[in-house]
Simulated assay, not measured.
Amino acid sequence: MSATVLPGTAVSAQHVNLKLGPGLLQFSGANEAGPSIITTRAGTLNHSANGSKWWVESNSKRYVPAPQESVIGVIIQKLGEGFRVDIGSAHYASLDGLAFEGATKRNKPNLKIGCLVYARVSLAHKDMEPELECFDAQTRKSEGFGELKGGFLVKCSLKMCRDLLDPKHFLLPLLGARFPLEAAVGMNGRVWVSAKETRQIIAISRCIEAVDPDGGGMDEAGVKAFLSSLDV
């Protein structure tokens, strides 16, 4: 279920383990009703099947970090024991050198300027720069997070990233049925792709750009015809 909302719209979200995502703000009201929740952006209000997770989906141009979201960042500076990372938001993010699976003070990843990392937002606050970590908070394992070696970085709209993370979306399964590939999708408008052949990487990036709602908005039939013309 979804509904169109504007900034300041009251949301009646209630759950024992309530988690608010991007576009929602909770504060203590002045009445006895308890905490109140309002929207902070225009878009579509969504919630999970059990009503525990609520968020506002909008196709904004700039990424606004939110806790638990996966992002693809670029290392731009080394800072003492950590790194400063560009994730496409208004502020750079910080990544501690120990925020990797198995990392210790003597054994830390040697990331260089320009390296790509697939990370999770561990802290996001309007008055602080976001913080990242490259492991799963529950298992303390990498779970796919960490440095992204090789491949190619594709920039697209935020909505396209959300679409690619939907298991029902056709693009990645369609491409995977034609040739082996690897992909990491960040919620910040960046997709990392890798394949055995250069022409396959080019085909993947071209398809993402063509299917992007802010681009051509191509459908499944159009992608199949496009791939046939590329002979991949």
Score class of each variant (00 low, 15 high):
170 F>M: 08
170 F>R: 12
171 L>K: 00
172 L>W: 00
172 L>A: 11
174 L>I: 03
175 L>A: 02
175 L>M: 09
176 G>P: 12
177 A>Y: 06
181 L>K: 00
182 E>I: 08
182 E>A: 12
183 A>M: 12
183 A>K: 11
185 V>G: 03
185 V>T: 07
187 M>H: 13
187 M>Y: 12
187 M>C: 13
189 G>L: 10
189 G>W: 06
190 R>C: 11
191 V>E: 00
192 W>H: 11
194 S>F: 13
196 K>V: 09
198 T>N: 14
198 T>W: 14
198 T>R: 15
201 I>H: 07
202 I>C: 12
203 A>T: 00
203 A>M: 02
203 A>I: 12
204 I>K: 00
204 I>M: 14
204 I>C: 10
204 I>F: 10
206 R>K: 15
207 C>Q: 01
208 I>R: 05
209 E>M: 11
210 A>M: 15
210 A>L: 13
211 V>E: 02
212 D>T: 02
212 D>N: 04
213 P>C: 04
213 P>F: 00
215 G>Q: 04
216 G>D: 00
217 G>D: 03
217 G>E: 02
217 G>M: 07
220 E>R: 08
221 A>W: 12
222 G>C: 10
222 G>Y: 00
222 G>S: 06
223 V>L: 03
226 F>N: 06
226 F>K: 08
226 F>C: 07
227 L>G: 04
227 L>C: 08
228 S>N: 13
228 S>W: 04
